[in-house]
Design a protein around this nucleic acid. Structure first.
Length: 722
DNA sequence: CATAGCCGCCTTTTT
DNA sequence: GGCGGCTATG
């Protein structure tokens, strides 16, 4: 292990790193260097003679994996260690043990758009009304089941009420659709791997013996399936090292279960637990604000944030008139900071929902501030990109009907709905796949002569592309993905048709060229490039992976994407009720959802190194309508040590509607988040205020845990200032 | 069979 | 406000 780097670690970090054998849990707050502990541990393991081949590190994003790989490499050869996300690891395992997992190795990975299509189809196939069974909801429910390793059959057996039985039906149909198409969704990757390890002891022990040391970062955001995979992977040795921070768990909605990290010590009773409470990132002021906020979470183990840096500048909270004023002001501050020597790279802007990026973008464009939106998956959602990828997908996986339907008439080649319906009918009658039916179109009598000819041309074209591939759907080693993609772009007619489509077509072609460039990068960086591997890899791309630190510009991203990053200057915008906490979480009256929103804010705050600027707007345009906003209840939880600024009018929030009568105004100034005292119930916090003039009602959550609805005029509540 | 235009749906966060 | 699917028309 590198001595100079080792010296940078505190005593407890060093202990964490060097405690090699057996289970180890590193419970660490933000900015404590917990990821660094993993990196150093990898280096230390290798230094003590462990073969890199025997090490498996699991990160949360591909980007994090990439960084860890490089850092571990710089600490002394870690080449050969497996460092990836859970999902990438699962792809590797499922490809390797495809026969044992009862799938075919050339599976397509379906993203949420593909998943939604399949669920819609499944709902339709069950003759259900999409209005009563919204595909998005069904998909969410199916995902939740998969995360708990519940398959359609076992769920169907236990389903007793109408909704559950219907869900079970849809789940089963959906799964059938996927397997007919040789597709797996994101949750399947985890579930199939967990089930494989669980049900095939030989595979499990083989992998557990290969990965003699398993290290997992961001353990607080693992779901049950991931937990199970981890548990099975270390079944032969218990050499599991997990790091995480329960206060930074922000993926509960996706199945992440905070209990995994909470129960680590009982899962592995001989675990060594190391707490890293020192924060090496943020100023004391920023940490104090974070600490104040997170203390409002009741479902939490108290943890101290210990600052190692001086107080620094105070955290600034600003109220703006509208989202445009907010954006303009923020742009001015960028320029001011830059004038004082700050680098654009050191500035980041966080928001709750992606739609909020627009106002910022507009302002930055006007002010000529270079910016980058950290949103990698967006690129892959573009129509032209999906189209070209769909061509590549059917080459590898001809059963991928979704891909086939995407390209069969793209660009338009006279194969319309009628033709497709007839092919499908034929395919169903003969119990063959759609692509197989296309190949046999000459024998389909219902088709017109012209349609048959067009289909023959299409099938022939695909066959030509496929000739470039080895028999197994893998390209011959000598050929890369990029040349193939380029050839498909030209010969499919896509290039020509886009070239004739004017300005939009030009943009599309540029995007496609970018895709081909990235494929060329892949070809260069991969030892044995294969189309299958390429397609599966880019399916697992995440937003955070688009973060490119090398270009000098400011970053815009959601609070979720900010996880794991740090910036000198952080701006968190739009901290309003309904946005943060988001209405979809607090509306459910679930305290757990609310606490997750608070953690999300906490994550954002603790990204800041030196300066933190929090803001909200009094008016915000939502769905085209300008609405009065309410400052987030979280703003009242930041403590006294912040500097409040106003732009436009007063900071103090002055009621739901300024035009209210004087009489009701005196009552109406209870806003959610306000601390109040009640003679009988004690301290509480306003949750809801229903304005009915003199008969206004408030709902208050008291510290005793109970929530009461009270008439303001009788309750005799007194405001408590923080 | 293609295209244009209209209607209606969704709209949190993401591997 | 934006996209996707559906329908009417050429």
């Amino acid at each position: 292990m590198d001595e100079a780097l080792a010296r940078q670690l505190t005593d407890s970090q060093r202990r964490a790193v060097f405690h090699m054998e057996g289970p180890l849990l590193v419970l660490a707050g933000p900015g404590s260097g917990k990821t660094r502990v993993i990196t150093h541990r990898i280096a230390a393991l290798i230094d003590s003679g462990v073969a890199p081949y025997n090490i498996c590190a699991i990160t949360f994003t591909n980007k994090a994996a990439e960084e860890m790989r490089q850092r571990a490499l710089s600490l002394g050869g870690s080449a050969g260690a497996h460092i990836s996300t859970f999902h990438s690891l699962c792809v590797r395992i499922l490809r390797r043990y495809a026969d044992r997992a009862a799938i075919s190795a050339n599976f397509s990975i379906y993203d949420q758009a593909d998943q939604l299509r399949c669920v819609k189809q499944a709902v339709k196939d069950r003759y259900l009304d999409a209005a009563n069974f919204p595909p998005a909801r069904m998909l969410e429910a199916i995902g939740a089941l998969k995360n708990k390793l519940r398959d359609a059959e076992s769920f169907a057996q236990e389903a007793c009420d109408f909704f559950s039985r219907t869900l079970a039906d849809v789940y089963r149909s959906y799964q059938n659709l996927l397997s007919e198409r040789n597709g797996v969704d994101f949750d399947d990757l985890l579930m199939k791997t967990a089930v494989l390890l669980r049900d095939c002891p030989d595979v499990c022990s083989e992998l557990s013996n290969r990965f003699k040391f398993v290290l997992i970062d961001e353990y607080q955001d693992t779901n049950y399936a991931q937990y199970k995979i981890a548990e099975l992977l270390v079944s032969q040795h218990s050499n599991i090292c997990a790091t995480g921070d329960p206060d930074q768990s922000i993926y509960r909605w996706r199945g992440a279960d905070i209990r995994n990290i909470m129960a680590f010590e009982s899962d592995w009773p001989d675990a060594v637990v190391i707490k890293l409470e020192e924060n090496f990132r943020s100023t004391a002021n920023i940490l104090a604000v974070a600490d104040n906020l997170i203390a409002f979470n009741r479902n939490r183990k108290h943890k101290k944030l210990i600052a190692t840096k001086p107080a620094g500048e105070s955290v600034v909270l600003t109220a703006y008139e509208g989202e445009h004023e907010e954006a303009e002001a923020v742009a001015r501050q960028i320029i001011e900071l830059a004038d004082n020597g700050a680098k654009l790279n050191d500035m980041a802007f966080f928001y709750r929902v992606n739609a909020q990026s627009r106002a910022l973008e507009e302002a930055f464009v006007r002010s000529r501030i270079p910016y980058q939106i950290v949103r990698g998956v967006e690129f892959y959602r573009r129509k032209e990109i999906r189209d070209l990828l769909a061509y590549l997908k059917i080459l590898v996986n001809p059963s991928d009907e979704i891909a086939l339907l995407r390209v069969i008439n793209t660009p338009a080649r006279g194969i319309g709905k009628t033709t497709i319906d007839r092919i499908r009918a034929y395919a169903e009658q003969n119990r063959i796949g759609l692509f197989e039916a296309v190949k046999r179109s000459g024998k389909i009598e219902s088709l017109s002569k012209a349609a048959r000819a067009r289909l023959a041309v299409f099938a022939n074209m695909i066959a030509q592309f496929q000739e470039d591939l080895g028999g197994q759907g893998l390209p011959r080693a000598c050929r890369g993905v990029a040349p193939l993609a380029s050839r498909v772009l030209d010969e499919s007619g896509m290039a020509q048709s886009l070239g004739a489509a004017g300005a939009d077509g030009e943009v599309a072609l540029e995007n496609l060229n970018e895709l081909i460039n990235s494929a060329a990068d892949y070809d260069k960086q991969t030892e044995q490039p294969s189309l299958l591997d390429y397609l599966q890899q880019i399916s697992l791309f995440s937003d955070a992976d688009a973060y490119d630190a090398s270009s000098d510009c400011v970053r815009l991203m959601t609070l979720h994407a900010a996880k794991g990053l740090e910036f000198e200057n952080v701006f968190i915008v739009g901290v309003e009720e309904g946005l943060l906490p988001h209405e979809r979480s607090s509306a459910a009256e679930s305290e757990e959802d609310l606490e997750e929103e608070r953690r999300l804010f906490f994550v954002g705050i603790t990204r800041a190194i030196a300066r933190l600027h929090i803001s909200y707007a009094r008016y915000r345009t939502v769905r085209g309508q300008q609405l009065r906003t309410i400052p987030s209840q979280f703003l009242f939880e930041l403590g006294p040590d912040i500097t409040e600024q106003t732009e436009g009018s007063d900071y103090d929030y002055d009621g739901i509607d300024e035009d209210q009568s004087v009489e009701s105004e005196s009552i109406a100034d209870f806003i959610p988040g306000q601390l109040v005292r009640h003679d009988a119930f004690g301290l509480g916090r306003i949750e809801k205020f229903v304005d009915m003039g003199a008969n206004s009602v408030v709902s208050v959550r008291f510290n005793s845990g109970q929530t009461k609805s009270l008439m303001v005029k009788f309750a005799n509540l007194s405001k408590v200032d923080m």
